[in-house]
Design a protein around this nucleic acid. Structure first.
Lengths: 177, 177
DNA sequence: TTGACAAGGCTAACGCTGTTAGCTACTCTC
DNA sequence: GAGAGTAGCTAACAGCGTTAGCCTTGTCAA
């Protein structure tokens, strides 16, 4: 058995991620992924059950990436920061990661979540900074919804082109703090 | 020229909407739409430019439907209701419509919005109740993001199965009022 | 009455997608 | 050396959106 990091599966995920990030979802085809590895599409099925299965691996990558960004954001603050400061930092990290990886963010947050297929605990770990900062569960969920809504609407260009999104973010964070 | 309401285009939209709502996005194929009308798929292109074009008509339907629900919600309140009461009513109407038409809601809110293809003014009319109720633009956008986030996360089953979403809605509305 | 023309069907086909079946070659173990 | 497992391959399938090109029907003008 070879190392996990140079595993064929890891190479597949890397190729898929690169394709998705640079070409968008339409560029993420089994044939394109295979081509990056100089093999043919059917060979991918020796390592991955299906395209959905492959995408789950990408979703896990996204969770790890955005989770790390959010953990770093709250850890970067001093001891016992104000809730408002923590939420602001968290929001900035959340938004910045999503804008840097729009297709990955969309893939990870759009459509039903294949919970049982994800590594156990990953979802909770990703959400942990927000849960820690926010008071009640209800407030945490409302804040998450706000952050996701702002982010996905921005990524999809649903706000008017001249909208001041920094201000909208600030208004939401202020209200929810 | 025949009546607009019995137009072939209207029949196509009706068939497409029915397919989408009952079978989900995978059921919405050109061949399936055509079959409902007892014609073959290529004939659809005499009335509609493309599948995307057909979907834009569905998106407009969704805007009209959800917009009407929201207008009705705020109009149903007395004169000069409290902002909190208006937002609560608006949120309920927004959420209820989306849950009643999940696939249509997703189609209308997911991905880039083909603004120029939509009937002029429709977007503004749909958003009008929220804009009227909310104070600042920033606050309106934050509230919209919250509502959309709560809704799409619920539709996609992203909240834990035991999450009290009524409470999360209430917390968000309270904070944003 | 006839001829032109547009509208709206049709079949055949194309290129793309994910995916399966079945074959083959290499490598490791006993 | 024999056998098994791993990982590649080609060929093919069904389904997708879409195009090309043909044919019938109805309308309206000359």
């Amino acid at each position: 058995m070879s190392q996990a990091t140079t595993d064929r599966v890891s190479q597949i995920v890397e190729a898929a991620r690169d394709l998705l990030e640079t070409q968008g979802p339409d560029g993420l085809t089994m044939r394109a992924v295979a081509a990056r590895l100089n093999i043919r599409a059917p060979s991918l099925y020796k390592h991955v059950e299906s395209k959905d299965d492959m995408e789950v691996l990408l979703i896990a990558e996204a969770f790890r990436g955005q989770g790390a960004a959010m953990h770093a954001a709250v850890d970067g603050l001093g001891r016992r920061p104000a809730r408002r400061a923590s939420l602001t930092a968290l929001g900035r990290a959340y938004r910045a990661w999503a804008i840097a990886h729009p297709h990955l963010y969309r893939l990870a947050t759009e459509g039903p979540l294949p919970r049982e297929a994800l590594p156990e605990g990953l979802e909770a770990w990703t959400a942990e900074p927000l849960v820690r900062v926010t008071g009640s569960e209800a407030r945490a969920r409302a804040t998450w919804a706000f952050a996701h809504g702002m982010t996905i609407l921005e990524l999809d260009g649903r706000f008017p082109p001249d909208a001041d999104l920094d201000q909208a973010w600030a208004a939401g964070i202020a209200a929810l703090s």
